[in-house]
């Protein structure tokens, strides 16, 4: 057990260090950090003094260690474009992205699972076929096109919903939320659906496949043979056994939701982390890019680590392998 955790932890640290190294190399070697901080009229002596004071003359590894240490504390320096600490920008933008991602994940689960169960139980029903066809189209429709279509219908033609921004937000001690105002909620609808649609089709197909698998097993047949009502067999016996892999995959998909949030935020001009990153690429705002790189990598590493641990806890076969194999 400890060996398994140690291996995984070691891997995670290596990944983080690699990403931090790339982020640092970007920061240090793309353009001149000094040039980006001072005005045109700064003399060469002043520049040299600033360079010395910031420690940019130190050996590479010392600089990298300092960068990694600061990054671990959430400090990424000043944004070239916004002229503000990156940590402040991130703190401002993070709630928007997390709110959008969370609502989308809930939406995807709340609609995807029932659709999957339905299509598994009524395999040849008309509605099931419609769902399956829709899901095929859903997979072929790129996220940004879904957003554009929604904007066209509900924003431009019907004029029901706002097409960009977060609406009014309420500040709850550093955490801004759009969930408490009407305009905030209305602004959330289209981005959340856009982001949820792909995950929804994925969850639906997964639940359907797992459910069909479970319905074929002996214990379900046995439950039927005992004369248990269909409803009980389907929802108590079968569905319960379907949900374990579904929850794991959903956990892993959390990362994808954050990644796809970049696209959704860009379509709807949603003021989150993803939009910040895309704008940073456009403006070559390296500190912001570095911060995003490190944060997204950290997020993924944590998710994967947790999922690995969960697998280990749930699946006894892994424990045997770990003891015999390593």
């Amino acid at each position: 057990m400890i060996g398994f955790i140690a291996t995984r932890l070691f891997q995670s640290v290596i990944v983080m260090l690699t990403v931090a190294l790339i982020a640092f190399a970007l920061f240090r070697f793309v353009g001149d950090p000094i040039n980006n901080m001072v005005g045109q009229d700064t003399t060469l002596e002043e520049r040299a003094a600033l360079k010395e004071r910031l420690g940019l003359n130190d050996p590479f590894f010392i600089q990298f260690a300092r960068f990694a240490g600061n990054a671990a504390q959430g400090e990424f320096g000043f944004s070239y474009q916004h002229r503000r600490p990156v940590s402040e920008l991130v703190a401002e933008r993070l709630p928007a992205t997390l709110e959008l991602s969370l609502i989308s994940a809930i939406l995807a689960l709340a609609i995807g699972i029932p659709m999957g169960v339905y299509t598994a139980l009524r395999r040849n029903g008309l509605l099931s076929r419609a769902f399956m066809t829709l899901s095929l189209i859903g997979v072929s429709l790129p996220t940004f096109l879904i957003g554009i279509l929604l904007i066209l219908f509900f924003g431009v033609i019907l004029r029901w919903l706002p097409t960009f921004g977060r609406g009014e937000v309420v500040d709850l001690g550093g955490w801004t939320t759009g969930l408490l105002t009407e305009s905030g909620l209305r602004s959330l609808i289209m981005p959340a659906i856009t982001l949820a649609l792909f995950q929804m089709t994925l969850i639906m197909r997964l639940v359907r496949a797992e459910m069909l698998e479970v319905l074929r097993t002996d214990f379900v047949k046995f439950a039927r043979a005992r004369g248990l009502p269909d409803r009980y067999v389907h929802f108590k016996t079968a569905l319960k056994n379907t949900l374990v892999p579904v929850i794991t995959i959903t956990g892993l998909q959390l990362g994808s939701i954050i990644a796809f949030a970049i696209i959704t935020e860009s379509v709807f001009q949603w003021p989150g982390m993803g939009l910040l990153f895309i704008q940073a690429i456009g403006n070559v705002d390296i500190p912001v890019m570095a911060a995003y790189l490190v944060m997204i990598a950290f997020f993924f590493v944590v998710i994967n680590f947790v999922v690995d641990m969960l697998y280990y806890a749930v699946d006894p076969r892994l424990r045997v392998d770990a003891r015999g194999g390593h």
Binding site: L252, I262, M289
Partner: peptide, 22 residues
């Protein structure tokens, strides 16, 4: 394995973004 744990579109975006600023 490590790469597989990141969505491919994110990897493409990150490589592209980094390359652009270089």
């Amino acid at each position: 394995d490590v790469q597989l744990s990141f969505p491919s579109i994110l990897i493409a975006l990150l490589i592209d973004g980094v390359a652009r600023s270089v």
